[in-house]
């Protein structure tokens, strides 16, 4: 009896939690009138028109061309994410190289395509925002994890004056609200100084800077956990700190690195405030593309907005469903590993 009651209660909470997402998916597949008249009912008829509308907006201007770009971008993003997070092992072989070059070339060419370029001046599309977010996240996450690994190794294993002070300074970055830096960063990246504002690259600096503190914390703990004997042995064998870092510490810290890639990738992928302030609406990241899409559509057509939501959220949820254990561990890492 008690057991049944508990399961019912949990199911109710599950319903509250999952229903909005279910409703969103269903609403994207039905007509506007149907949604308005019977919002709770199962759809009376199904249609894919909303997806066509979303895909036809921006980008190449044609739904099928945009869909192709999107279908190329999604596996690429998922593969890059999973590979960087060490969830799929993939060893680069020489014969892969032509394929990779062809794929990269095709994507670059697609982005540089005159038709796309012209259309983007008017309205950026989701496919394009995907590629922007993808390049931005790969660059920022790679840089952040590499820089943080170097610093964390020094803070954990090298002895120098001011080590503690430096560590505390990094930790300060985790505590302060990022919005304190919005105005000065706007000036720093603006036309008078770095002149990066408007390109997605403007976001790399701030993203890396604010990913470093938590990465340093987790990696320092990981390096601290390596037995000192192991490092001493390497040192006696004549390894320099760099060689120890590269060939002993990094391989042993792989789980922590994977965790950090997940955490930083998702934080960057979803980040809103910096992207809103520093990126151009013509070359948006995915969240900003969604924001503008809503702005253009007004609040008229629910299915179309829901289709846009599904297009931008479903890939994330699919990757999440496949690797949920790792992703949950990654996102809670900063809190659990004290």
């Amino acid at each position: 009896m008690q057991r049944l009651l508990r399961h019912l209660l949990l199911l109710l909470c599950l319903l509250l939690s999952a229903y909005p997402l279910l409703w969103m998916t269903l609403a994207s597949l039905r007509t506007d009138a149907d949604v308005l008249e019977h919002p709770f009912a199962w759809p009376s008829s199904w249609q894919l028109r909303s997806y066509g509308d979303v895909l036809a907006a921006g980008g190449f201007g044609s739904a099928s061309a945009n869909l192709t770009l999107l279908l190329a971008a999604f596996p690429l993003a998922a593969a890059a994410f999973l590979w960087m997070a060490d969830l799929v092992q993939f060893r680069l072989r020489l014969w892969h190289l032509p394929f990779l070059l062809a794929l990269g070339g095709a994507l670059l060419a697609a982005q540089r395509h005159p038709a796309l370029h012209r259309a983007l001046q008017a309205r950026p599309g989701f496919a394009n925002a995907y590629l922007n977010s993808l390049t931005l996240c790969i660059a920022a996450v790679t840089a952040a994890v590499m820089l943080a690994a170097l610093a964390a190794f020094a803070l954990s294993r090298l002895k120098f004056r001011g080590s503690n002070l430096l560590f505390l300074t990094f930790m300060l970055g985790m505590m302060i609200p990022v919005h304190v830096t919005l105005i000065p960063l706007n000036l720093l990246l603006g036309p008078q100084l770095l002149n990066l504002k408007g390109s997605p690259w403007a976001l790399v600096g701030p993203y890396v800077a604010f990913a470093i503190p938590v990465s340093v914390l987790i990696l320092r703990n990981a390096f601290d956990a390596i037995p000192a004997d192991l490092l001493d042995a390497a040192q006696i064998d004549g390894c320099t700190p760099w060689l120890i870092f590269r060939h002993v510490a990094i391989p042993l810290a792989k789980p922590a690195l994977a965790t950090l890639v997940i955490f930083n990738f998702l934080t960057c992928w979803n980040e809103f405030a910096f992207a809103l302030t520093l990126a151009d609406s013509r070359r948006p990241t995915l969240p900003i593309a969604l924001h503008h899409f809503k702005g253009e559509q007004g609040s008229l057509d629910i299915p179309v907005i829901c289709a846009a939501l599904v297009i931008s959220v479903a890939p994330l949820l699919i990757v999440y469903a496949c690797a949920q254990r790792h992703i949950i561990r990654g996102l809670t890492a900063g809190a659990v590993k004290e």
Partner: peptide, 20 residues
């Protein structure tokens, strides 16, 4: 080991706070 991370952190996080 330390310069790259510190430089980026100072440039894009600490300096802007002082800038504020």
């Amino acid at each position: 080991f330390l310069l790259p991370a510190t430089a980026v952190f100072v440039c894009f996080a600490l300096a802007p706070i002082l800038g504020s």
